[in-house]
Design a protein around this nucleic acid. Structure first.
Lengths: 363, 363
DNA sequence: CTGAAAGCGCTTACAG
DNA sequence: CTGAAAGCGCTTACAG
């Protein structure tokens, strides 16, 4: 890294003071147009590069936002990250990215690092097992924090999904297809999101007077391999479930794959529903029925919430933002066409089954 | 952002000078152990947070690395990003992430922003259409640059893949399966990587005395939708190709999907080979034969190369690093079992067909 | 409309 | 072994 010219050098070249240069760089109207042009000219010829770090130090501000993400092997979180980065960049912020790979110690380390880097704010999807005290600790740092996807209490701005309602929709859909024995793949008791999803499934089953055997709630990894394990477990049950609600699309992909390996077809042999509507879910064989809450919308919402806090926008107020998008069910082939179900033709037209109710936009 | 204590405050609390505090924070051996402990104690009770920005400004260094990535909708680049971020974090660097979505203007903007943020170095997979002059320009900034996946001349450190050899392997494999009419899906004439891939395919066809019809080289988007278009085009040809080499796994996923929609099975109706071995390729229906160069290995290599430049390691020298990994072919069901081909049983045992030659590790 | 001065929170010779 | 001083590249009252 060679030195490079500073505002001092520009000042000398343009025959003005560095105060003037600084003001010109900030497009201040206090500087006469011709002076400004002279300064800009000098900056151009010298190849000046603004040093944002120095400016931030002096101005006690920061144009960097930290984004802590738990699982980039799940395309849903990638879609979220992309949306967040895009919106922040549009507003002039740079994104410091860190991946925790669902590891709480890594998360602690990167948060400390981001704090030292003086981030203006943080967006985080906390790793599973994050202690409940973390949000209060971050808030004590005096920078805004927005949680995405994984709520941790009502004291912190949160953008997520109404999981209970979503999984109720999925379960309802399967029941309407004629299924009565429906399994749930990807249990993670004790974690908020997992509890919500399981609860949405359980309460809908109960509402229809359908019993749920204990072993129908299959505890597997939240990965394609977990989905494969789930299929093997389900086909060992008798009488076996004819449908399965999966924790997310990653699990559902494994389910579709294992069924294919067994020479069976999802939809026919076992109705399958995922969650997240990742891009790939449209191109699986067969295409996957899944819940969509809109990664792009959620990411935009999370960024906007953080930006509102950063700019101290008054339309956001002091109230904690708790936004939970209402997912809609995207019906595709993986959940229709079962022998014991109604004809699937009406479903194959595609599209959403339920015009999702939108919550009020908080920012 | 409330003020927070500075080394000055610690100095006052511990009854020493701020010089001493600074040295203690740097674990300098020049400070007596008891003094150091006293300082650390004061820092702890005051809740001190190191201000890396101020340190970087004064020390004229930087602990931030910029990562500019062209397409995060392709999981391969996500795997690369994850590996790079992990290695950099282990070495104490923070990753500034920016996504260009294959847009050259966005790329220009984020590069400028990263330069202002004073990144110590850059890792970039350039957007398609990036002008050849860009690398020289970045190098004139005086910070190291490592290109990943997409070479731009021999003047800049580059970590990529031997695409020509990889696509030769794929084509060879299909020919050995008995195919003689083999298509290529995802043409992008004019781009280096695309040229290499097409060339690997063409030269292998030629080496076997197999003719290639013009329209077998199908120009489609490098996405699942492009793959679907390719299948429709291929099935319109007569006599039609019995196998297709896809530009990457994203295209291949679309191919598998469209075949399934047509009630056909990849492998049987059309042999399909992808490229990148993204995690999902193992779980498609049927599983996808593809080329693996190891995203994790490539990311690690790129980071290490940059780190070597940053630390001025002497084992790297002044020579430009040009590392191209030799891909290996992972044979799965999508390319075997065609009627006109040998029995597929021997292939189904899985595993790699070719123990890839590794290039010499450059760092 | 412009400049001189102070200072953001650090590090680094230099002196003792 | 420790401290006083200068300075990294900016911004921001304040004065004129």
């Amino acid at each position: 890294m060679k030195p490079g010219p500073t505002i001092q050098d520009i000042a000398a070249a343009a025959g003005v003071s560095k105060s003037t240069v600084s003001l010109v760089l900030q497009d201040s109207p206090r500087i006469k147009a011709e002076t400004a042009e002279k300064v800009r000219e000098a900056a151009r010829t010298l190849g000046y590069v603004y040093n944002r770090g120095a400016a931030n130090l002096r101005g006690r501000r920061s144009t960097t936002v930290g984004m802590v993400i738990n699982d980039l092997t799940n395309p849903f979180f990638v879609e979220l990250l992309v949306a967040i980065e895009r919106v922040l960049a549009q507003s002039g912020y740079t994104t410091l990215m860190a991946h925790t790979a669902e590891n709480v110690e890594t998360q602690t380390r990167v948060l400390r690092s981001m704090r030292e880097q003086n981030v203006a704010g943080l967006i985080m999807s906390p790793a599973l097992g994050t202690p409940g005290s973390l949000t209060a600790e971050i808030q004590s740092w005096g920078i805004p924090l927005v949680l995405v996807m994984r709520p941790m209490g009502t004291d912190v701005d949160t953008v997520g999904v109404n999981n209970a309602h979503g999984f109720a929709l999925s379960t309802e859909h399967l029941i309407q297809q004629g299924h009565t024995r429906i399994a749930f793949a990807g249990n993670r008791s004790g974690y908020t999101v997992a509890n919500q999803r399981r609860q949405g499934y359980l309460s809908t089953m109960a509402a229809h007077g359908l019993a749920v055997e204990d072993n129908w709630i299959v505890d597997v990894e939240l990965t394609p391999n977990g989905g494969r394990d789930a299929v093997r477990a389900i086909f060992d049950m008798k009488p076996r479930p004819t449908a399965v609600v999966c924790y997310n699309d990653q699990v559902a992909f494994g389910v579709l794959h294992e069924l294919d390996r067994m020479g069976k077809r999802a939809g026919k042999a076992l109705a399958v529903v995922g969650c997240d509507n990742v891009v790939a879910s449209e191109h699986t064989n067969p295409p996957l029925t899944t819940l969509s809450a809109g990664a792009d919308k959620l990411g935009t919402m999370a960024s906007r919430t953080l930006l509102a806090r950063l700019e101290g926008a008054d339309d956001i107020g002091d109230d904690v933002v708790q936004f939970f998008a209402e997912p809609e069910l995207i019906v595709r082939e993986s959940s229709v066409g079962h022998q014991s179900a109604r004809t699937a033709v009406e479903w194959r037209k595609g599209g959403s089954v339920q015009p999702a109710r939108k919550s009020k936009d908080p920012v």
